[in-house]
Design a binder for these strands. Structure first.
Lengths: 347, 347
DNA sequence: ATTAAATTTGTAATCGTTTTTCCTGAATTT
DNA sequence: AAATTCAGGAAAAACGATTACAAATTTAAT
């Protein structure tokens, strides 16, 4: 806003060249012991003193322009106000900070146009790397990231065969486990609530469901999956649940946390006793599970590991330690039946 | 990464000067009808064609360096994985996008050192404006923002008498309403669960509680407030709730959403019937409220308005339309009592 | 003392845009 | 025909930092 202190001002004030100031400010240590810029103690101290006195703040734009790196990561999720992504964002923020990076966040609402806007905007802001949860129809925008040569890592979904690491849950196995939990608690007539959206996570969870169900001898597995549109879902959930209950289903699994929670609300409102009239297994953690007796078991994603691995990839891609190619990193889910421990609240 | 297309490449390819390219790319129209750059249709088209063909992406750092504006807002919250801040973040993201801005997010965990780190990092990244939920002891870091002449707006809290707009809830009134809801549902012996943290929102909510309680004729109002430390709170919540219940309290209000939800969980685990053995009113929205019968009423903050107003201030400060000075914008809370359903008790 | 080597510091190019100033030739006016 | 406009465009100076290279100075070696 007002005239900011620049390296030049410091140089003038300290009576040295700007190069020297730059050197001191960055305190470059000889990387390989070879000859490098050295500064006498005296001048170094004087420069530092002046910098402090004038409250020097290096200009990030100039630095970025020169170095070609902004130390900003762009994270593109479905919706940051969804706790699942909220936790991911939090984890990434912490990891990024430890590496001197910050995180820009964008929510797509599963709309390719929004994703496109965000991607363009982030490229325009000069992010050094992307972490993206791709929505349906986002191929074109993702292509732009690739062509811009900005490092890219996919998270949560791998529904595009592009040369980038993909950090995902073993969704198939996760849903098989969910069904198994229901079996163990005595459910026999099990169905699934899912989205029509064809993204890998959803599709694979449905596959896991069908896989286990056919092992159990069911032949109409696909008919046991109820798919509702992602947008304006609440009405559809009500209808689906009403339909499911009318047919005396006694076990229910869900493709996402959102479906789980809204279904629980609907069941509750309808006066259907959860874990008694119908058994359910949740997907992702939620505050509501432990309000039931017994608590609603659920399948949990290892969010910290997912984030750590994904961020590690972007950093290494940015640093040029590895080159970007198609690879899939699959993480195991955890099934949780007891109450979460207190440590859950400690950060 | 690889050589990016610059304005210079386009100029060469189109056989014009770089100035012309810049002019066309920014499509500057004469601001006051005075003499300005004029470009013939032909050259304009050619430049645009070349730019498109070469997939030109303007370099944001260079632009920022030249213009002195980054079009990035820094948002500093307590914890982005808390739904309350998640919703705020989402709202801000949308508003920012409409104005061509993006949002950097930082979580302080109510720790002044973390806030300090975030603030420094954001200043270093060159944000154009700050929206901050200040935590205890963050005066020094906030001072740095002020001295950097970066526009600043406080959100949710106003516990610092500094020259910046403060967009806050009418916390006093909100909590008076919460108590009133309890009165109406028949509670007589009402207490409050709060944090030891002395930030304005908490303090004012406590004041509201005491204000209404003394109107009701209670003289020991302050003794009716249980304050627990913010960090590692779960154990404290358990103790506090146990203590409260042992004294036959029949109504309970909470200073935050976190306290509400964890208390509900504890009460539930202890086998205490909410709205029956003890009546509660929640603070901020939550998925859990409507699982009870009748649903737990709550006090809601007008998040969209808060964000709209706060963002409006930063934008106008950035544009120099207004000058930064101390002022407080107070918003009214809403009390929500959803319809009772025919659901059974959650237990 | 003289020269070579080592240490400290300055010069200038560069990163990619934006923006002010100025130049050219043609059209219009007088 | 000379003077005046004006459209269309080029040149160059910023913006603030980094960094290769050269220059100056000190120290060491003979």
């Amino acid at each position: 806003m007002t005239k900011n202190v620049t390296i030049k001002d410091i140089a003038a004030e300290a009576g040295v060249s700007i190069a020297l100031v730059s050197f001191v400010m960055n305190n470059r240590t000889e990387p390989d012991g070879r000859k490098k810029y050295r500064v006498s103690e005296a001048t170094r101290d004087k420069i530092l003193e002046v910098a402090r006195r004038l409250e020097y703040q290096p200009n990030p734009a100039a630095r970025t322009l020169r170095k070609g790196k902004s130390r900003v990561i762009g994270a593109v999720f479905s919706d940051i106000s969804n706790v699942f992504y909220g936790e991911i964002a939090r984890e990434m923020e912490d990891l990024a900070f430890r590496h001197g990076y910050t995180v820009l966040i964008g929510s797509t609402d599963e709309l390719p146009e929004k994703l496109d806007n965000i991607v363009n905007s982030f490229i325009d802001k000069g992010v050094d790397g992307f972490i993206v949860v791709p929505c349906e129809g986002s191929e074109k925008s993702i292509g732009r990231i690739l062509r811009s040569n900005i490092p890219l890592v996919f998270l949560d979904r791998r529904n595009m065969d592009l040369p980038a690491p993909k950090v995902v849950l073993d969704n198939r196995d996760a849903m098989r486990n969910a069904v198994r939990l229901l079996e163990e608690s005595g459910a026999r007539d099990i169905e699934m609530l899912s989205f029509t959206m064809r993204v890998s996570s959803i599709v694979e969870r449905e596959e896991g469901f069908m896989s286990r169900m056919s092992e159990l001898g069911f032949t109409d597995c696909d008919r046991r999956i109820h798919r509702i549109p992602f947008h304006n879902q609440m009405g559809y959930v009500q209808n689906a649940i009403a339909d499911i209950c009318s047919r005396g289903v006694d076990g229910l699994v869900f493709a996402t946390n959102y479906l789980t929670i809204s279904s629980i609300k609907v069941l509750n409102t309808m006066g259907i006793r959860i874990q008694d009239d119908i058994k359910v297994v949740g997907f992702d953690n939620s505050d509501v599970y432990e309000l039931f007796n017994p608590p609603i078991p659920y399948v949990r994603q290892p969010i910290p590991s997912m984030c750590r691995i994904a961020m590690d990839y972007v950093f290494r891609l940015i640093d040029g330690e590895i080159k970007q190619e198609s690879q899939i990193i699959t993480l195991d889910s955890e099934t949780v039946m007891s109450m979460p421990s207190d440590s859950h609240f400690v950060r």
